[in-house]
């Protein structure tokens, strides 16, 4: 019966060696949550202009999954680039880039030096209007990071699923693809982010909401 207590004793020793309450140590008090470069205005949490913001609170696990709510407006030739699961300089990240070009909305998924341009999926979006998206990045797959892009409806997970995504990089889940693109190169290259940080790069854009949370889909 003594042996029954050995694993429990080991657990207690390990627990006592580290904090199990997650209490405040002051680590996040020294910074306001973001680091903003010059050229970018940050008024009441809304960003405008051109520049970079890196969110100082990390996403936690590098091999984790998160959702990102982005609401923004693009000027002509303007761009918003969401980089996730990258290093502190957003290097080695995966993400999505939105660009307004010749009146149309151009969307790219990128990571590991690979850019995949997604055509035809965003033709119904007014590139000059307010754009509002929910984006999932699952950086915890053994092969490539799994990305979803949805039109934002609410913060409820039940409103988002693999079947109603505008973009779902899961090769096996793509509907008949009008572009002829099916992302096989994405999985073969096993593109993933290699850090815990995320942020935005703006060119002539205004960002109203940029918020990270738990993933909306569990695929």
């Amino acid at each position: 019966m003594k042996n029954a207590f050995l694993p429990l004793l080991l657990v207690l020793i390990l627990i006592s060696a580290c904090d199990i309450t997650g209490k405040d140590t002051g680590a996040n008090q020294a910074i306001d949550g973001t680091q903003v470069t010059t050229g970018l205005q940050n008024i009441d949490g809304k960003l405008s202009g051109s520049g970079r913001v890196v969110v100082s609170k990390s996403l936690g696990q590098v091999r984790g999954a998160s959702s990102f709510h982005l609401r923004f407006k693009l000027q002509d030739e303007g761009e918003v680039r969401l980089s996730t699961y990258g290093r502190a300089d957003l290097d080695q990240s995966v993400g999505v880039e939105f660009r307004r070009k010749a009146g149309l909305l151009e969307v790219k998924i990128f990571g590991g030096g690979v850019d995949t341009l997604i055509l035809n999926r965003f033709e119904n979006f007014q590139a000059s209007g307010v754009l509002d998206f929910m984006i999932d990045v699952h950086n915890n797959h053994d092969d490539a990071a799994h990305l979803f892009i949805w039109r934002y409806t609410s913060d409820n997970s039940s409103d988002y699923g693999a079947q109603n995504a505008i973009v779902n990089t899961d090769f096996f889940k793509l509907p008949l693809d009008l572009d002829g693109l099916d992302f096989p190169e994405w999985h073969d290259l096993a593109v993933k982010g290699n850090g815990p940080f995320w942020g935005l790069d703006l060119i002539d854009a205004e960002v109203e909401i940029y918020k990270a949370g738990p993933p909306k889909d569990n695929s």
């Binding site: 580290c18 904090d19 199990i20 309450t21 997650g22 209490k23 405040d24 140590t25 680590a27 996040n28 020294a30 910074i31 680091q35 890196v54 969110v55 100082s56 609170k57 990390s58 936690g60 696990q61 502190a88 815990p196 940080f197």
Partner: peptide
């Protein structure tokens, strides 16, 4: 259930307490 990430840091590389 419990899980702790001992490597979580913020941008200033300060250890972030989490569980």
């Amino acid at each position: 259930d419990t899980l702790k990430n001992f490597s979580e840091r913020n941008l200033l590389q300060k250890k972030v307490n989490n569980i």
